[in-house]
Amino acid sequence: MKNAYWANLFKNWDKTESETVTIIKKLPIFADLNNKELNEVSKLLHDRTYKPEEYVFKRHAPGEGMFIIQSGAVHIIVGEASGNSQVLAELSNGDFFGEMALLEDEVRSAAAIATDHSRLLGFFRSDLQILIERKPALGNKILQNLSKVVCTRLRKTNELLMQAQSDK
């Protein structure tokens, strides 16, 4: 009883890094964030568990935010569920997906399905908006990083397009 009391009293003295912070600090979206800021972000993340074959989201469903894989595996699928679907990406620990939904209120362009027991961390647009209002400097950093990620993706897509055109 006494131990619990002291542990509670000095809980903020425990500076060991949480599991969530260890995972998110490696992501480009949260690059250049100090430990305090990472802790702040980790408080906003939603811890969700998915069974194998459970949809994280379906194609054309309204997108609200991005997911980070804490453990497990997720497939990103394009095409119809009726058969001619195609696995676009196989994602595992530390990968993230759905980050476009953080920037725009649009429907999902692909589906995401858990292929194993998975623990995902959700980071959603509404939380990012509140973060921008509460801590503008931190919100700004994340938005900048997000823009960098989108730019990198666009550059890669352009390169692939140019390569496909030159192959013709």
Partner: peptide, 25 residues
């Protein structure tokens, strides 16, 4: 406030989670 909201929305099932967050917001 923000912590309370987070602990409340965690009870929303996976299928309706994103929609639930949208509704709450």
């Amino acid at each position: 406030y923000h912590e309370f909201k987070k602990s409340l929305v965690q009870f929303i099932p996976n299928k309706y989670f994103e929609m639930g967050l949208r509704l709450v917001f």
